[in-house]
Design a protein around this nucleic acid. Sequence first.
RNA 1: GGGCUCGUGGCGGAAUCGGUAUACGCAAGGGACUUAAAAUCCCUGGCCCAAAAGGCAUGUGAGUUCAAGUCUCACCGAGCCCACCA
Length: 906
Amino acid sequence: MSTPRIFGDYESKWQKAWDEQGLYHAAQPGTIEAKEKFYGLVEFPFPSGAGLHVGHPRSYVAIDVVTRKKRMEGKNVLFPMGWDAFGLPTENYAIKNHVKPQDATTANVNNFRRQLKMIGFGFDWGREVNTTDPAYYKWTQWMFLQFFKSYFDESTGRARFVEDREAPVKGRGERGEGSGDTLPTTHYPLPSARMAYKTTTTINWCPSCKIGLANEEAIGGVCERCGSVVEKREKAQWMIGITKYAERLIHDLSTVNYLERIKKQQIDWIGKSEGAFIDFKVAYGQRLTVDGGDAVRVFTTRPDTLFGVTYVVLAPEHEFVSKWIADGVILNIDEVRAYQQASAKKADMDRTAEGKEKTGVKLEGVSAINPANGEEVPVFIADYVLAGYGTGAVMAVPAHDERDFAFAKKYELNIVEVIKPKRDIFQAKYSLVKKELESLGTPIENPEQEKDWQKKLDEEFNGFCKRVELGEICWPHEGSLMNSREFNDRYSEDAVAEITSWLEKKQSGEKTTNYKLRDWIFSRQRYWGEPIPIVICPSCGYVPVPEEQLPVLLPDVESYEPTENGESPLAKIREWVETTCPHCGGKAERETDTMPNWAGSSWYFMRYCDPHNDRAFASEEALKYWMPVNLYNGGMEHTTLHLLYSRFWHKMMWDLKLLPESIGPEPYASRVSHGLILAQGGEKMSKSKGNVVNPDDVINEYGADVFRVYMMFIGPFDQPAPWDVKGIEGVKRFLDKVWRLFEIADSELRIADSGLETIYHQSVKKISSDIETLAFNTAVSQLMVLTNAFTDAGGVPEEMVEGYLKLLAPFAPHLAEELWHTLGKGGSVHMSGWPTYDETKTVSASFELVIQVNGKVRDRIQVPSDISEDEAKAKALASENVQKYLEGKEPKKIIYVKGKLVTIAM
RNA sequence: GGGCUCGUGGCGGAAUCGGUAUACGCAAGGGACUUAAAAUCCCUGGCCCAAAAGGCAUGUGAGUUCAAGUCUCACCGAGCCCACCA
C-alpha cells in the first residue's frame, strides 16, 4: 500500500462502482430481495442557484449513516432523494436573468445532484423525483381534485367523497369519467364544506413578491421570503380545510415518535383553547333590548368571569361595524371610520413599533346586554382584538385580563372583580372562628360541636354558590389588577362548566373549542407552480378538469412578472385561459392561480414508494410495503409548515381511502431534527457576511469521507454547531491514521492480545447503540478510541479486521470499501452484515475499584471483575490510606457499587 | 410578556440508573526524527502548592443523599420559538 490518501481517485472509483452494482437499489415488494423494509427520509432540497449549503449534508449524512447500518443488518432500505423545485426564488431568478424557470431548475438540479453524488450518499437515484416534472405534478393536481370532490363528514370525523353519499369510491387512479358528483359544482361561492374550496378572504399580500401568503408564511406581519411588510387584501382564494383536522392533528401526535419539542411546537401552532361563545344582545339608541336584533357573539376561555364584564370590544373589521354605520345607528360615524382606516394601515406596519399601547373608539348609540345579569355595557372597537381569531369580538373583563385592564384604565371604564365560590375561603373563615373560640378558653373538643360548625359552613358555602348562579355576586373592585397567582388560584373548572351549562339553558351561549390554526390558503398568483386544475364556467361554476386531461401543463410564457392587480401571469395567456367547460361544453376559463410550493412536498414521500407509476401516484402494494416512513429528519423551521401540511395531506388521502388502511393515518413513525451549522465563531452563515462554507471546496481539499466524518463529529446532532477549520484537520488525521493502521496490518503483524478484545466489543456495542439514538458524535469518538487502541497495539488483530471496517463503513464508506478490497475481501463492505458483540466480553477481567471515605476518593486498587461484595469491602478497609482516615473508628455504613466503588461513611 | 432548551477546561464537547468530572477532538507547551520544513511519533496539561500529601473546582446560593454536572427550590446569564390568541 502506498502513502495515505484519504481523498482522490478511490472515492469516485467506488461511487461509480456502487452505481453500476445498484448497491443502493431499493427492491420493490413482490421481488425476491424485498425483505423487511426500512424507509429513511430526509427533506428534499429546493435546488437554489447558490448550490448546496453545508447545512444540507448534516441531515443527509446522519440518515445515510443510519440507513447504511440498516442495510448492513439485512434490511431492504429505501433512502431516496429528489427536488422540491417549484417556488419563488427560481421564478425571481428567471425574471432577473431572462431565462425560463424550467431551464434554471434543470441547471440547478444538475448542480445539486453533482454535489450530492460527490459526498457518496446511499441514495437510490433510480427513484429521484422532481415536483416540477409534469409526470409528478399530474398527481399533485389529481390529489387537489380529490380534495375538491370531497367534504368533511362531521359524523365520522373523516373526509369522504361527495359521491360517496350514493356510490362507493373506486380505487386510486380509477375514478374515470362520469363519476357522479352529487354536490353540485354550480354553487357559487362553493360551500366551504368541501376540503378544497374557493372563497373571498382577507389575505396577507406581499407587495414585493406580489403574492398572497399563507398565515404560516406571514409570521409577524412580514413576508417569510423577502421580509417585506405584508398588507391585507380581499381576494378570492382556493383554501384547504385543515382546521377540520385540527383535533386529529393534535391527537394523533400521541401515536408517533417525534422529538418532544416538535410535538409541542405543532400543538402550540394549532393553538387549541376550550371556552364558550356568548351572545350579547345589542341595544340601539334609546331602545334597551331588541328581540330578534343583532347579537354580538364573543369567544372566551373564561365564561366564569361573565359577571365581571364591563364593556364589549369588536375588531375594527367586524362586519357589524359597517352594518351599523349603514343602518345609521352609530352616532360618531366619522370617528369610527377614521379609526377603521388607521388600524387597516397599522396592520401594514410593524405592530410592535407602537408598543402595546391600546387604542379604541366607543361606538356611540350602541350598547350590549350582558346575558347573565341584563346589565347594559358600552361597545368599543379596538385593534387589540384580532379579526381572525375566535369571533372577532370579546367581552372585556378588566379585573381578570391584563389587556382589558390596560384598556379600561385608559378609557376610565368600570373594573368589576368576580369572586369565585371557593371552598377554601370558607375553610379559612371556619378556622379563624375556631381559633377565636379557643382563645376565649372554650376549646372545641366535642365532636358534635365540630360537626355542627362544618354543617353551618357547608350551608353558607352552598348559599354563596347559589348567589353566583343568580348573578348576584360581583361587586366593584377598586384595587388594581390581581397578580397572576391570585388569578389562577381563583380559577375553577367547575365554575366554567357551571356557567356554560347555565348559558346553554338560557340559549345565550354555548361551549366551544377554538383553534388558532386557519384554513390553508392554497392559491398563489404566480407562474412557477402547479396550475390548479379547475375550469370556471359561467353557468356551471367551478368544474374540475377531467382526470384523463391531467396534467394541466404550465404553458410557455414570454414574461413571468406577476401583474400589478394581483393576477397570475397565466391570466395574460388568453389561448391558455380560454377553454370549454367539461360539464356543459360552453365557453369557460381556466383557473389561473397556481399552488403553493408546499403542495408538491406534501406527498413526495408517497411518490418515492413507486416513482415511475403512470397509472397512479403509487401502487397500493408499494404504499402498503413502504409506508409509513420509519425515520424522517428535517429542520425545525418546517415544523409548522411542511410537517403539519404533509401530515394533514396524508390524513385526507387516508380518509378518502386513497392510501391503504393498514398504514394508518400518520405518514412518519418518527421525526427528528438537526441543529444548524453555524459559521466559524458561532454566527449564522449568510451570503452577506461572506462566511458561507461551500461543500465543494471542502470535498476537493479533504475528500468526502473526511467531510462526512467531520459532519458527524462536529457536535450533538440536534444542536447547532459552529464550523471549525481546525476540527476538520483533526478528522483528516484520524482517517490517515486508519489508513496507516492497515499498512502495518498488511505487513503481517498479528496481534494476539486479549486486552483489545474488551475494547473491541465495547466499541461494537457503543457504536451500534449510538447510531440508533443519533449520537453520532460519540460514535465517531468511540471509533477514534478503538483506532488509538489498535495503533498502540501495533495493528488490528485478524479476527477484528472485518468488524472494524464494518463499524467504519457507514461513516467513511469509501475508505472502508477501499480497505475491504485491498485486504482481498469479496463483495462490498456495505452489504457484509453488521458486526455483533459478546456482552460478556465487554467487561474486562479486572477493574479499578475506587474507595471513598465520606464521599471523597481516598484510594484506587486493581481488583478482578468477579470480586464479591464482601471481598471488595474487605480490600477497601485494608487499604493503608483508608485506614488513615478511619482513625481506628468503626465505620457507620459501607456501600458497594458493583464494578465501580466502595464507599465508607463515618 | 409567555413557552422551550441550556450554562462543564483556552475552544467544540464526553459523562446509561445519582457512583472515579473533564472521554474524544482542537488549540498550546516541551521533546524525537530531519540540513530544514511538512508529515509522523512521544511527553505535559482544570485551579492552588516547589513537590508529595492535601484542598478547591461543572453559572450563583441553599436543600436532599454515604455520594449531586445529574434530583429539588431560589437567583443570575445565554439561546431559540411564539408573541395583543380573549
